[in-house]
């Protein structure tokens, strides 16, 4: 069970196919965050630190209840607090648990040049292997969610692992276990999608949140962390959740056509030089006897 859950699906910076890829089919895992029942208690933040062995971080007060302005290399899970005034004038908090989205089409993995530094497991988890990380931070360039964070001391990049170590042992991620309201769910992608859609439908039918919906952005192939939002039309309100995240087209151009143009260009250049050498050869300088004689005797 455990080995199947952590079967590798894609490897960064890797020439050739993935060993044993697509040999078996298993379910995709998914974390569901229901922002409508989050109370902002930050138990998930603490559980994340506890499980991953990081000390509590110095907090930064910015006139909200948010622990700090952004996630950090050793602070992977952050509740974002956003003050929000509804059209009817009522004030409220929009609280969103921010962490790696575990994209089905991960921009970090596409950008990474280091063989094996980023792997995508068949169950959907995108994980960083710091022992192979070279610290170039191309993953930062590739990520549409601003998730990978650099540790300047070790020169390695870190992010949420979706507790791949716990999941491989058949456990739920630490944040899920700590959530007191049940706003966090964990299971197969199909099940989470189903729960999320039913919850959104319930919100639309029985509450004032007529625009409630499920955030599972297709621009990155869907994600293995999905949200139920009160207002699916304005995800930016939830601490800058992009409305239609995609891997930057310039990253695609760089890692797609340019890589092939560059590689084949160099091969064709070498062949062209070999042809020129064989066809035309060196430009040998011969001096007319008379001229040389005239000049140097």
């Amino acid at each position: 069970m455990a080995s199947k859950l952590l079967q590798i699906k894609a490897i960064s910076g890797h020439a050739g196919t993935v060993p044993g890829g697509n040999m078996s089919r298993d379910y995709d895992v998914c974390k569901l965050v229901d922002t409508t029942t989050c109370i902002g208690c930050k138990a998930c933040e603490v559980a994340c630190l506890e499980w991953n062995g990081y000390p509590f971080h110095p907090t930064t007060f910015d006139n909200t209840y948010q622990t700090m302005p952004d996630t950090a290399w050793n602070y992977w899970n952050l509740i974002r607090f956003n003050e929000h005034t509804a059209p009817d004038g009522t004030f409220g908090w929009l609280m969103r648990k921010d962490q790696c989205m575990h994209c089905a089409d991960p921009g970090c993995l596409a950008s990474c040049p280091a063989d094996g530094a980023i792997v995508q497991y068949a169950n959907g988890i995108v994980d960083f292997n710091q022992e192979h990380c070279i610290g170039c931070q191309y993953c930062v360039t590739g990520c549409p969610f601003n998730i990978p964070k650099f540790n300047p001391e070790t020169k390695k990049v870190f992010k949420c692992t979706l507790c791949s170590d716990r999941v491989s042992a058949g456990l739920e991620p630490a944040c899920i276990k700590a959530c007191p309201t049940g706003c966090l769910h964990f299971g197969s992608k199909d099940d989470m999608k189903d729960i999320a859609e039913r919850r959104a439908k319930q919100l639309r039918a029985h509450t004032a949140h007529k625009d409630a919906g499920v955030y599972d952005p297709q621009g990155v192939g869907g994600t293995h962390v999905i949200y139920v939002l009160h207002d699916i039309n304005n995800p930016e309100k939830y601490g800058g959740l992009p409305k239609n995240p995609t891997v930057d087209p310039i990253v695609r151009l760089w890692k797609g056509p340019l890589k092939w143009v560059g590689g084949f260009g160099m091969i064709l250049g070498a062949l062209g030089i070999a042809f020129h050498y064989l066809r035309y050869g060196p430009k040998e300088a011969e001096i007319h006897g008379g001229d040389d004689h005239e000049r140097h005797t």
């Binding site: 590739g142 300047p152 930057d248 151009l253 250049g269």
Partner: peptide, 28 residues
């Protein structure tokens, strides 16, 4: 790249692309 603010992350992709193109020209 860690000095780039979040709002300018799109610049990272642009400069990386330009860097690669310029480098390929020098290699040729």
């Amino acid at each position: 790249p860690e000095l780039m603010p979040r709002s300018l992350h799109w610049v990272l992709a642009v400069v990386t692309f330009l860097h690669s193109v310029a480098a390929l020209v020098t290699i040729g």
